[in-house]
Design a protein around this nucleic acid. Structure first.
Lengths: 146, 146
DNA sequence: CTAGAACCTGACGTCGACGTGAGAATCAAG
DNA sequence: CTTGATTCTCACGTCGACGTCAGGTTCTAG
């Protein structure tokens, strides 16, 4: 397959595929004119790479995980890397779930004050409810490393 | 409170707080010398902002959501924004969960081939299992918009 | 009063996963 | 043979949430 085909089938840009190769994530042999040649399996590999990118893994992290797909043999080093990324994902999922639930709370709270579906004018003076309802504690989740 | 106190209590950098103000997310009045003065509530506000950042919201998205915290009154526009972000979060959580489960599968698969806890030498020739086990289908989740 | 800590305003640097040309070569079809 | 589509290799641009340095001002403890 040529690079355009893989790009189309995997749903990524041609540039992305060249970038993956540059990062060592995707190898391609070359035709006589220097054009890249991919096996069919490249499509699934690219989709897997995309999934990991979408999950927030970096190129180098993916590079450490990918060899397992090829060899199906995990060195202890690789296994620990897999588990570390799994745990990181779990933590991030928990953070996102917290944020999701918090937004859900706000939405429900908003529905209480805006139950007139058509009257969108700002004349809705909400009944003087005690605003002193103690705010829930939030997660101090840090994603960025200072 | 001064900016350093808020930073310490909220667990962010001083630079971040100035950046939040620059983005309109956090207002501070000034002391006679030009130093920023924050109320106690700023700490929780910053933690909330951090949670939304960690959830992948952009500054402008947070800016559209935040006024609701202050007024507790949601315009229809604001309510739709809240719901949109909630849905985006839900979708992202699903993606992350897929990736997490996939990693979990790999880890379990790895455990089959590497059940000798101490012998870490690469002499473990796994039993010749049919590697032709068809790979599961992957999600073509796209986060980046080309 | 004075040293050092904390704060101020610019303004440039960073990092990662590509986007976006530029200019040239290769390939597939008529 | 020609033309248009695809591909090639540099190499610079982007965007967002800050980090970081520079040079100056303000606060606070002794």
């Amino acid at each position: 397959m040529r690079i355009g085909d893989v790009a189309k089938l995997a749903g990524v840009s041609v540039r992305a595929l060249r970038y993956y190769e540059e990062q060592g994530l995707l190898i391609a042999d070359r035709g006589p004119g220097g054009h890249r040649q991919y096996p069919q399996s490249a499509v699934e590999r690219v989709k897997f790479i995309q999934m990991l990118y979408a999950a927030g893994l970096s190129s180098s992290a993916i590079l450490q995980v990918l060899p397992f797909l090829d060899t199906l043999v995990a060195s202890p080093r690789m296994a620990r890397q897999l588990e570390a990324e799994r745990d990181r994902l779990k933590a991030q999922i928990d953070d996102l779930t917290k944020a999701h639930d918090r937004l859900e709370d706000l939405i429900r709270l908003a529905a209480l004050y805006e139950d007139s579906p058509a009257t969108c004018e700002p004349n809705e003076t909400p009944p003087t409810t005690p605003v002193t309802r103690s705010r829930r504690r939030l997660s101090g989740a840090r994603l960025t490393r200072h």
